[in-house]
């Protein structure tokens, strides 16, 4: 239907070999949960937990949005640099959004969101990675806070989120959802693509309706469908959904709306932080540690 012609799935493949890590590096732990029968229970449990999480929506002003986009780019870069899982990066963005939506960040403090991103990334790493990282590993020319300040910010984030930092992310579902629609063989190819779509969904404004305001399960389902077929209409999407047992768990309207939004996404790539006018203008030239693929113009900045 309309609007699908510009979407190119292959562009989301660009990134994949940037480092050796993929999301299924601990696949066997996941498989430990066993068969699909168990998966059904797990999916229901996770979706129940989603229900308990307050949704985020707040209207923030543009400068916060700019800072947030910049923070996400930084997180994407750090993920690559430190060899973190995509899951971790996504979780970090969820923390940031939850914190911002409490209205505690004022737009005149440029450094606040930077400090927030460092603290949130550190927390996400502690939650999801096997190896914790030293706080100093999160410092770059542009983000340089002393340990004490970061730890205080971690505590502020934890208390602001009421210590409820075990959040359900789309990554909890995509493995299972892909299995719902396809057999084992194409799974390997679908997984990285779906991952990229989900990561791309962190971009976009935090006002009105960012994709991240959908439930994680909806995002995971929409991303799975996006990877499998970019030409779905509302009707054909419903038909497709109905072939899987998870069908009953979803609001079809939401899935379709989210799917449509995903077709507008641009892939997210590792790239230098863009200097804002108030910051050091030389910043882009120094970062040789980062490996850039290309510096495509990012529509969100």
């Amino acid at each position: 239907m309309e609007g699908t012609s510009t979407f190119s799935l292959t562009r989301f493949l660009v990134q994949e070999n940037e480092n050796g890590l993929s999301e299924d590096d601990d696949e066997d732990e996941v498989n430990e949960r066993g068969s699909c029968v168990d998966n059904e229970e797990m999916v229901r449990t996770l979706m129940d937990q989603e229900n308990n999480v307050e949704s985020i929506h707040s209207h923030v002003d543009d400068s916060i949005n700019v800072a947030r986009s910049e923070a996400i780019q930084w997180i994407i870069n750090m993920r690559s640099l430190l060899g973190l899982r995509y899951y971790t990066a996504y979780l970090c963005v969820m923390y940031i959004d939850r914190f911002i939506s409490k209205g505690l960040v004022s737009s005149d403090k440029q450094w606040a969101i930077k400090l927030l991103s460092v603290a949130c990334l550190s927390l996400a790493v502690k939650m999801k990675e096997r190896e914790p990282r030293l706080l100093s590993s999160y410092s770059t020319e542009k983000y340089n806070f002393n340990n004490n300040v970061i730890q205080r910010m971690e505590l502020l984030v934890l208390t602001t989120l009421d210590w409820k930092i075990r959040l359900v992310t789309p990554f909890d579902f995509i493995d299972c959802f892909i299995s719902c629609f396809s057999n084992v063989s194409p799974k390997r190819q679908l997984m990285p693509l779906t991952t990229q779509i989900v990561i791309a969904a962190t971009r976009g404004k935090f006002t009105n309706m960012s994709i991240m305001e959908y439930r994680s399960s909806t995002i995971a389902m929409a991303a799975t469908l996006t990877v499998m077929d970019q030409q779905l209409t509302k009707e054909s999407l419903e038909i497709k959904l109905k072939t899987a047992w998870v069908n009953q768990l979803f609001d079809h309207e939401d899935v379709y709306a989210c799917y449509k939004r995903m077709l507008e996404l641009e892939p997210v790539q590792v790239k230098p932080e863009l200097a804002t006018s108030s910051e050091d203008p030389h910043v882009g030239t120094k970062r040789k540690r980062l490996m850039f693929n290309e510096t495509e113009k990012n529509p969100n900045l």
Partner: peptide, 30 residues
């Protein structure tokens, strides 16, 4: 110093915040 808030503390508190059952110890406050 240099590690930030201890991951053990974070995990334990996070879990205890979610848990609510008569046969599990009750976290009253942090």
């Amino acid at each position: 110093d240099g590690d930030g808030v201890s991951p053990t503390a974070i995990r334990e508190i996070m879990l205890l915040r979610e848990i609510n059952h008569e046969n599990v110890v009750k976290l009253v406050n942090v």
